[in-house]
Design a binder for these strands. Structure first.
Lengths: 142, 142
DNA sequence: ATATGTGCAAAGGGTTTGCAGATAT
DNA sequence: ATATCTGCAAACCCTTTGCACATAT
């Protein structure tokens, strides 16, 4: 496997260890995932991985802005690879989380205008029902 | 003091105790506040208040949708009285949190269109610099 | 070769729970 | 009167930390 995160770590003067690569690959693979799920997933192929190392590395990677905390209402804290701004869509049926990249400038400008706030960053979560689950519900009715 | 939350509690078949009223008033007074701050605040006038009661009630009030969890990135979890949807503005200078009530329908519609999501609820946080802090910075430059 | 990172086990700190006594209705 | 709630203290996590060994560079 090509270790896409090797250079990211090096760029931050962090050593490229198996543990760190496993953590980053796991998070990257899942998109959004919480600590326990990361641990369980990695533990399958890598039973010697310790939780102390996981916690330490998660914190370090957040500090270095390689990871980002995702705090969704009514959910355990999750982590994701830091990407460009996007909206989190949280499906109430299947608990899935989708990312959507969409123009938020008009809203941000309206907020600035109304509040006088200079906005540097935004975090948007929307709760609802995803396309797949909507379709499932519809099928079961008809 | 008129106990505005007495009826809210009764409506949910929860007994209107001093502790619950103190918790709700404290949160209402502050807008957004975390558990420890609630405890300290209530403890001043009400030293016998126990943390167990605070935790139990916070959880109960969230369950009954009287309170709402507010999870802001890089902040401790806070609580607020459940209100109509609004945007949280988080100032990076003074750490203040403002609420702003603004039209988000166009964005929600765009999201629905692009993703097929049926949105029931949204949670929006914007980070930046509030009007007061912007002005402070400007003054110190000129 | 050496600064960093890891695993282990113990410590720490926030949250929950069982129980007996207190309180709201 | 009685179901509910509270305070206390102990139990229970989840998370962090100290230390000796291992690893990446």
């Amino acid at each position: 496997m090509i270790e896409k995160f090797h250079d990211v770590l090096k760029a931050n003067n962090l050593k490229s260890t198996h543990q760190r690569l496993a953590i980053l690959n796991c998070i990257d693979m899942h998109g959004h995932i919480d600590i326990d799920a990361i641990y369980e997933h990695i533990h399958l192929n890598y039973p010697s991985m310790s939780k102390a190392t996981l916690y330490r590395n998660i914190n370090d990677l957040v500090t270095f802005h390689i990871l980002e905390e995702v705090k969704l209402p009514h959910q355990k804290q999750q982590y994701e690879i830091k990407k460009v701004p996007h909206i989190h869509l949280l499906c109430q049926e299947c608990s899935g989380v989708e990312d959507i990249f969409i123009e938020t400038k008009p809203l941000l400008e309206a907020v600035t205008l109304q509040s006088g706030f200079t906005i540097s960053n935004s975090f948007i979560v929307m709760n609802g029902t995803c396309r797949v689950c909507s379709h499932k519900n519809f099928s079961s009715i008809s």
